[in-house]
Amino acid sequence: MSKLVLVCDSGATDKLQTLAMVASGAVTNDLEVFIFFMHDAVYALKKDASYEPDVTSIFPEVAEKVNQARKEGKIVHWKELLEDLKELGDVKINACVQITEILGLKKEDLLPIVDDVVGVSTLAEQVMLADRVISF
């Protein structure tokens, strides 16, 4: 099975949605997916994340229409999509240990979709094993 590594350090909703969509394309093509969340992206994985930003865009019309589509339930939320993908394929979701510890978090404080809290050495190891790497 081919492997794809996805790395995200942004908590921006549009980046997380894009990551989840790319992961869905990978799963439907039978790729193994290793996802590594860093920095703000780890904050977005908190169970009690109190703030979720709207999708932003340099084009106001894009932001308006995408957020409207989200409100109307026409776009699967990235958290729900990742949860589905874990059920449908080989998807591992990891949080960066550095930011997790800085924020005083444990794995239990993060969403159940998170498989592990690991360091960049593990990321590098997975990158060496991967066929492709995409960062967001």
Binding site: K74, V76, L88
Partner: peptide
């Protein structure tokens, strides 16, 4: 019909699984 990509495909995959 009310879902954008990848919604329809994901729903089909889940249902078939």
């Amino acid at each position: 019909r009310n879902s954008f990509c990848p919604g329809p495909l994901m729903e089909l995959i889940k249902t078939i699984k």
